[in-house]
Amino acid sequence: MDTAADIGMIIHGIRLPITAQDVSPIIWHALESGKYEAKEARQVQRLLRSGDRVLELGSGIGVITAVMAQTPQVTIWSFDANPHTVALAERVAAANGIENVTFRQGLLTAGAPEQYSFYVRRDFWMSSMIESQGPFEDVIEIGSQNVDSFIGAQGINVLVMDIEGAERELLGAASLDGIERVFLELHDHLYGLAGVRDIFAAMNERGFSYDPRNSSGPCVMFMRDDGTPRSYCEEE
């Protein structure tokens, strides 16, 4: 029989076998309250279609990954630079019987592979490649892979990312060939509205449109379409 410690908590329908010692107090409170990535969890359920091949950048502890993995016949590759959160995400996947996700500790960027410094913070959702973002506990030196090469090699058609400001540079330089839908969290506290404008301009140049029906606040979706008007729907 499962004990309470074995079961952990349930959030967004996902079994979460972690403890308060695994994460910071702020993140633990967000998990206990059910507010942790609640908006993202609702939206990604509408994002995916059967058979999608998904690249997730910024897996965190794997909650959103696990939600996405419930879509039939979906295959997911999920990257995070932080080895601690990758280990937690793998634990979450195992507890939920998820076998269609490959987790990797790594960094995907546009352009030629380079070495980067990644700053690990107690609140892991603040970990980033930006030293000035705030106090950090550790620095990881990590080599990058080219994101477009990975997309092409794996036949990726959906890109999901929450990478603490790095989305501005990546989307400004990557070609995103083969990608149909992009779902990301904007971080205007790191690059201002000018950065948001740059992201929208880059997506427009690559033939993507902002999807207002599947976006909410900083969590936005871009998709390619042929310009055909949509049927009217009542606002949710």
Rank of each mutant, 00 (worst) to 15 (best):
F200E: 10
G34S: 11
E234V: 11
P72R: 14
F222D: 02
G217C: 07
R42T: 05
D226F: 15
A94H: 12
V160M: 10
Y116N: 02
C219V: 14
F200G: 00
N204Q: 15
A5H: 12
E167L: 06
V101I: 14
R42E: 15
A81P: 04
T228E: 13
R213G: 13
L159N: 11
M161Y: 10
I163E: 11
G13N: 06
Q73S: 13
V182E: 01
I199Q: 07
S59E: 08
V196Y: 11
M129G: 02
S78P: 00
D2M: 15
G227A: 09
A201V: 00
F124P: 00
I140Q: 10
F79S: 13
P83L: 15
L16F: 12
R122N: 06
E131W: 03
D80W: 00
H189R: 15
E236R: 09
E90H: 11
A194N: 09
S24Q: 05
F136Y: 12
L48V: 07
L176R: 05
A38P: 03
R46M: 12
Q70K: 05
I151D: 04
L88F: 04
E185H: 06
S117F: 01
M9D: 15
I163L: 09
Q154L: 06
E185C: 01
R53A: 01
M129V: 05
D225W: 13
F222L: 09
Y232G: 08
A87V: 05
Q73H: 02
S128W: 03
G8T: 08
D198M: 12
E141W: 08
A95H: 13
T71P: 14
I142Q: 05
V147G: 03
D6G: 08
Q73P: 01
G106W: 02
A20P: 10
D52R: 05
L48S: 03
G172V: 00
Q154E: 04
A81I: 01
A95Q: 05
G195P: 15
Q21H: 14
S50Q: 12
F118Y: 11
V74G: 00
M126A: 07
Y191L: 06
S231V: 15
R197E: 12
R224A: 01
A202R: 05
G8L: 12
S78V: 12
I142F: 10
D52E: 06
D188K: 02
S215W: 08
E114K: 09
Y119R: 11
G165A: 07
G195H: 10
A5S: 14
G178V: 05
D177Y: 09
R213Y: 08
V74N: 00
F136I: 10
K35D: 14
R49I: 08
Q45V: 07
Y210I: 02
F136R: 06
D162Q: 02
T228W: 08
I142M: 09
E205W: 02
